[in-house]
Computed example of a mutant assay.
Amino acid sequence: MSGVTPGERLAARLDEAARRGEVIPQPSQEAALSVADAYAVQELAVARRLDRGERLVGVKMGFTSRQKMAQMGVDEVIWGRLTSAMLVPEGERIAPDHYIHPRVEPEVAFLIGQDLPVGAPPETITSAVTAVAPALEIIDSRYADFRFTLADVVADNASAAGFVLGAWRPVPPSLDRLGVLLEVDGRMAEAGATAAILGDPWRSLVAAAQLTGRAGMPLRAGWVVLAGAATAAVPLCPGEQVRAVIESLGSASVGVTAGSPRP
């Protein structure tokens, strides 16, 4: 289409791939893509969702643990946008054909109680949190075999696909040494600790506020920040029930109906 930029074309491809559950080639296989350009593509792709009536409700952090970096083959913290359509009610059973090859991981969620100005110091950022919750993030790459470069995954909204929130809790004295379990059908699939999230989930929150602020999208009152995975992600398979349990915070769960993911 005349007048459409390469970034707009890529944003449209990624948006349609997510809507249709279709795998597309990695952009980096076709042309050079910088991380800065990838964030611009991410913004354009999410803007298409907002144009359809979705709302921004927060941000997610990615690659905040060495284990996750190793699993995905990258070495840099990233962030993506959360929209209202991504929120899955706690305990609900989702249809697998809504995704391509979904995975799930346990996280700590922060609830932001007031708008944060760009450049806010760490103490202002942390004091803006009014509650925390255990969470599950559903990730789902639009690329074959979950393989991508750093720029590829940033453009793909950091693989964001859905999230589940447990009950909100008062902010505890500390969050850095809480045990984490990821259970599948009542059996332990992964175990870890919140210290895997940049050493302390609060650091991830500060990084989120700083990164989004520099991008011209400061955190807003009512938004959720997913701090990043505390363990490796596991496949989200038809018929399974998955639960994240975080010491002193409680649990969050999601089920998958019988059926098959999209081919």
Rank of each mutant, 00 (worst) to 15 (best):
L111E: 07
D115V: 05
D115Q: 06
L116N: 10
L116A: 14
L116M: 13
P117R: 15
V118M: 14
A120R: 09
P122S: 12
E123C: 04
E123P: 03
I125V: 05
T126E: 02
S127Q: 01
A128H: 01
A128W: 08
A128V: 04
A131Q: 00
A131P: 00
V132R: 06
V132F: 02
P134D: 10
I138E: 01
I138P: 02
I138S: 01
I139R: 08
Y143H: 03
A144G: 04
D145L: 13
D145T: 10
F146H: 03
R147I: 06
V154W: 10
S159R: 15
S159W: 02
G162T: 08
F163W: 09
F163E: 11
V164K: 00
V164A: 05
R169H: 11
S174H: 10
L178S: 11
L178Y: 10
L178A: 11
V180G: 10
L181F: 15
E183S: 11
D185Y: 02
R187Q: 15
M188Y: 15
E190Y: 01
A193Q: 13
T194C: 12
I197K: 12
L198A: 15
G199R: 13
D200R: 05
D200L: 06
R203C: 09
S204F: 05
L205T: 06
A208I: 01
A209R: 02
L211Y: 01
L211E: 08
T212H: 03
R214M: 14
A215P: 07
G216D: 01
L219Q: 06
L219V: 09
W223V: 08
V224R: 05
V225A: 08
A227W: 12
A227D: 02
G228C: 12
G228Y: 00
A229S: 14
A230M: 09
A230R: 08
A230V: 09
A233N: 03
A233E: 02
C237F: 14
P238D: 04
E247W: 01
G250C: 02
S251T: 04
